Amino acid sequence: MTQKKSPQGGTFKKFIVVMVIILIIALGFTGLNYYLKYFGPNVTGKQEYLYIHTGASFNDVFKTIKDEGIVKDSTTFYWSAQNMNYVNRVKPGRYHLHEGMSNRKLINMLASGTQEPVTLSFHDLRQKEQFAGFVAKKIEPDSASIIHLLDSAAYLQQYGFTPDNVYTMFLPNSYQLYWNTTPEKFFKRMYANYEKFWTPARKAKAAAINLDPIKVSILASLVDAEALHDDEMPTIAGLYLNRLNKGMKLESDPTVIFAENDFTIHRVLTRYLSINSPYNTYLHTGLPPGPIMMPSVNAVNAVLDYQKNDYIYMCAKEDFSGYHNFATNIADHLANAHKYQQALNERNIKR
């Protein structure tokens, strides 16, 4: 006699199958949710960089990310950051963002401090204040903190500089450094480059003309301010060295303009020559106490490889080409000066 299957047994089996299916679906959903939270694309691409300031907390970072719309879903970012313990691993810096980055990739980058360096390129900056302001636009420290070190005799002493001549340490070039570089680390980086530049060969050339690297750079700043064309720099350097060796005043017009602190002056009048300043080389013999601008590498090399000549005087050419007429005697110089003054008058250039 055939036994009938128990209805209850069949129902139980169906229940088990259904439960297994539900469990599989739940696990799949949980896995998908986990994947999306960690590995799914979340960075929007609205901002190219995320800046995290020194001393920032996780809450500061999260506020920036949320306020600037850096991620699509700030809740999943927060959840991921908590689970990856990023809240205790915040590092300052400038972080390059890519659209579609996942929470996991973004958090790993931030927690490891994997920054993209900034490129700092500077040249032709006349004054320390101008330089500090320029640098502060590229890295985290503000201009006041940089100026503080530039003006600190005690701090600069360790590098062998003074507030007057420290500007000679900064050689125009392109540098890569991290955005959150401190003012002290910035100085160390610049000094390392300065020492690398001043090779034994360059120091020997400086010694041969009775100058040290700082004085070479101060003289180079005068050469740079006078020369519109680099090919004329060695000639001007030779002229200035002639005057130094003869004990003559350098009588450099750019030093008067620097002392007056008016860089709009195109015509140095007699009244400017009596400005009471240690930078006025019409009043004081020898080099000024510091550079009148950040000297270029070409100007420094022009002093070291100066042209040997007998020139004592120079005057801008009357054709306004940017070149100079040079002279070995006062008579020729006065004739050159007269031609230039006439040209200024014809163009109604009064100052």
Rank of each mutant, 00 (worst) to 15 (best):
E116T: 15
V223C: 02
H284Q: 12
Y282M: 02
Y279K: 12
L50T: 03
I25T: 03
G69V: 02
N85F: 07
V268Q: 09
K66I: 11
D67A: 15
L269S: 07
A327P: 01
I292H: 00
V61D: 08
T328D: 06
F29P: 04
T281F: 08
I147P: 10
Y155M: 07
K4F: 15
S102M: 10
V43R: 00
G10P: 12
A327M: 02
A237L: 01
Y240A: 04
D212G: 07
S74L: 07
Q157E: 07
Q115W: 06
H338S: 13
Y51H: 12
K138A: 11
V20H: 06
G9Q: 12
Y95Q: 09
R347M: 12
K5P: 15
I349T: 04
M1Q: 13
T162H: 02
H96Y: 13
T285D: 11
E140N: 08
T54C: 05
K91Y: 01
V118L: 02
D230V: 11
L283T: 09
Q127L: 13
S174I: 02
K203L: 03
F258P: 04
V135K: 01
N193S: 14
N329H: 09
I25F: 03
H229W: 07
D60C: 04
F15S: 13
F12L: 15
I22A: 14
I22C: 11
D231Q: 01
V223P: 01
N210A: 12
H148Y: 13
Q176E: 13
K196W: 04
Q115I: 07
G160A: 07
T182V: 09
I25S: 02
T182L: 11
D164E: 14
H96R: 14
A208I: 09
